[in-house]
């Protein structure tokens, strides 16, 4: 628990979350979600939850993003909102 880090990362996470749902291009959105997951992983490592951070690094940032990319590649990148 390092307050400064904590706060900064939380803000980053927020920025990423907002960006991920506002960006019009789906693939960009997915990539931002990947960055979001990276930051979350950092956040959890910082809070001492190493196992969760490990899982998030492997799942959220890795498999999750890959699956999303693959799904977008099989469908479409277009998004109206």
């Amino acid at each position: 628990m390092i307050l400064l880090f904590d706060f900064a990362i939380l803000i980053f996470v927020l920025i990423c979350a907002v960006a991920a749902i506002t960006v019009k291009d789906l693939l960009s959105s997915v990539i931002i979600l990947g960055a979001y997951s990276f930051l979350l992983c950092l956040l959890w490592a910082e809070m001492g939850a190493v196992d969760v951070a490990f899982t998030e690094a492997s799942v959220g940032a890795g498999i999750g993003t890959i699956l999303l990319i693959v799904a977008v590649s099989k469908t479409t990148r277009r998004s109206k909102d």
């Binding site: 196992d51 490990f54 899982t55 492997s58 799942v59 890795g62 498999i63």
Partner: peptide, 17 residues
């Protein structure tokens, strides 16, 4: 150390992916 079946499994899967 941190880790375990799930994380390892995901990494193993990621290597195949």
């Amino acid at each position: 150390s941190p880790g375990g079946g799930f994380q390892g499994g995901v990494i193993l899967g990621a290597s195949l992916i």
